[in-house]
Design a protein around this nucleic acid. Structure first.
Length: 370
DNA sequence: TAAGCGTGGAG
DNA sequence: TCTCCAAGCTT
């Protein structure tokens, strides 16, 4: 048997009980997820594939479990190993990621796969420090992979954990200032045994019981220890910083349609908003600058017709895109552009805002064709 | 440290 | 409709 974590210096019996109660709850109430090895299988000696853990953790950054599931399955089907992903074409990876958002994750995913395959013989580092060096892997993700995939004792602190901890210890310091305080307390809770299950238990608890709104405190295995319950206002924790009002930006999108139904596309620069993704020609709307919204700003002369507008919300601004369509008889393909056959549009690396614009001009165009 | 970076679901 | 926010990272 592994020594009790209570034997660790400075760890009280009470804290050890707390981890034990959480793990017991996890054994009975954990979520079953495509990338997860459940506690029973883990106890029986099964080990997660680090590639699966890494892929899921990158996808789950600021993204809901339900949104990730189909993408995770698709990626594993297309690229079963990190070597397969390294061998893949970068544009194909962007296409497969399209719709999931935060596209720098996809670019870093490919960089990371290339590095692991070429420099590390396909084996992910097992230590937090080693993992932290990988592109797209920050403090949270390094700790999560170390704990979940390699059984290392690591303090895994994400939004769920911040919420659970701030309530458990009634921390009223606003986030993100409270992070060092939360981390210090978390360090004292992580057990020597089952650190991966402990991390996932904290996150499951935050996702299903200790929720942002209307927490189900009656179901919580830690309710006896929770200082926020005593204080009477768990729902008001954690305290968060001020929110900034989103500016409204405007621009125009131009959907050129060839006689055979093909659509004119181009690729966005690798850096910045929607970096590396494809788009229909647009005015130069960015995070800071409004674009033109009229037909006079079209990329080339054609019979442009106004087809409506689409609204889209980004992280830090909202966009209203005026959509024009022109049916093209004859046109020299502009440099850096290509005609995407109507049957292929579904599989292009089109972010959601671009699919909306295309749908506005050509209803059904971005749906799968047979 | 703060800003930039997507999308969709819940309440 | 609107606000919040979900397994954060990079610069």
């Amino acid at each position: 048997m592994a020594p009790s974590s209570a034997a660790r210096k400075g760890v009280s019996k009470h804290q050890d009980d707390l981890a034990g109660r959480l793990l017991a709850w996890y054994d009975a109430h954990h979520r079953e997820l495509p990338w997860r090895i459940g506690p029973a299988e883990l106890a029986a000696g099964a080990m997660p594939d680090p590639y699966h853990v890494w892929l899921s953790e990158i996808m789950l950054q600021q993204t809901t479990v339900e949104a990730v599931k189909p993408y995770f399955r698709k990626f594993l089907e297309k690229w079963p190993t990190v070597a397969d992903l390294a061998a893949a074409d970068a544009d194909d990876v962007m296409k497969a990621w399209a719709g999931l958002g935060y596209y720098s994750r996809a670019r870093n995913l490919k960089k990371c796969a290339d590095f692991v395959a070429s420099e590390l013989e396909g084996a992910f580092p097992g230590s937090e420090d080693g993992l932290r060096e990988l592109p797209g892997v920050g403090a949270y993700t390094a700790a999560a992979i170390a704990a979940i995939a390699f059984g290392r004792r690591a303090s895994v602190m994400d939004g769920n954990v911040e919420r659970v901890m701030s309530r458990l210890f009634e921390i009223r310091t606003p986030l993100p200032s409270a992070k060092p305080e939360i981390r210090a307390l978390l360090d004292g809770l992580v057990p020597e045994d089952r650190p991966g299950d402990f991390a996932q238990a904290m996150m499951d608890l935050g996702a299903t019981v200790c929720t942002p709104k209307r927490p189900r405190c009656m179901l919580c295995p830690l309710r006896e220890d929770c200082r926020a319950i005593v204080a009477g206002d768990p729902e008001l924790l954690p305290v968060k910083g001020k929110k900034i009002e989103k500016p409204q930006r405007r621009g125009a999108a131009y959907v050129a349609v060839r006689k055979d139904g093909a659509i004119l596309l181009r690729k966005r620069p690798d850096e910045g908003l929607l970096g590396g993704m494809s788009e229909v020609p647009t005015t130069g709307w960015t995070a800071r600058v409004d674009g033109d919204t009229g037909v006079e700003a079209a990329p080339f002369a054609a019979d442009w017709r106004h087809r409506g507008s689409v609204a889209h919300v980004f992280t830090h601004f909202t966009l209203e895109l005026t959509v024009y369509r022109a049916d093209i008889g004859s046109l020299a393909t502009p440099a850096g552009h290509w005609w995407s056959p109507i049957s292929a549009v579904h599989d292009e690396a089109l972010p959601t805002v671009m699919k909306k614009a295309i749908e506005s001009a050509i209803p059904g165009a971005t749906k799968r064709r047979h």
